[in-house]
Amino acid sequence: LPQTPVRAAMSTIQQLMAVLKSASDKPTEKLILYFNDCTVNPMESILKRVKELGCTFKEKFAEAVGQGCSEIGSQRYGLGTRLYYRVMESILKSEEKRLSIHNFSKLLNNGIFHTSLLACALEVVIATYGISRNTSQSNNMTMETDLSFPWIINILDLKAFDLYKVIESFIKVEPSLTREMIKHLECCEHQIMESLAWRSDSPLFDLIKQSKEQDGQTDHSEPANC
């Protein structure tokens, strides 16, 4: 059959569904082993966070697209959670190989890392369906409009610069991402670099300040946020 925009969009969604069909929406056995190897086991806080952010996501999703669509919000969050655990496991395997360590207590007990990783997974899911809408030009699917980036970081109260820190690792370890999706994540990166990371409450300014202090070049006449 000839490729059409609709067929291409459906194929993207089917590909995501196929990859995540075998993935779990709970930590896998391998992940639990990583959690058990930590100085402080992060399992409970991870499950609690996923549950709490799920409530926020579903509530905001329904507000954005209509209360009648709350079930769709739950489905999207479920897919995002599966991708989050899948990528988390791949990242840990990759870091284990790179650093030759098994104890990832600091990383796995860092709430910002988890929220960033989950946000990235959810952005992939949202964009997959968003791409479908843009390609199919179907009027009854325009409800996704309000969910485009940076919607996800706003509703999860995440700083754009923190999301930026996970995108590259996410792309590196997730082989199923389509070329279109990698381009989308790259666009998110550009948006962050060009404007979102430079908002006054961005953690980037603290990093710049720390960096200048480490270099012994702190200029007191000009605050970092100038």
Binding site: R98, F104, K106, S169, I182, E186
Partner: peptide, 21 residues
Amino acid sequence: TQDYHFGLEEGEGISELFDCD
């Protein structure tokens, strides 16, 4: 991923970005 520009330095990973040893 051939068109994607990777910004992490050689030998650097996500642990460093979240201040982990």
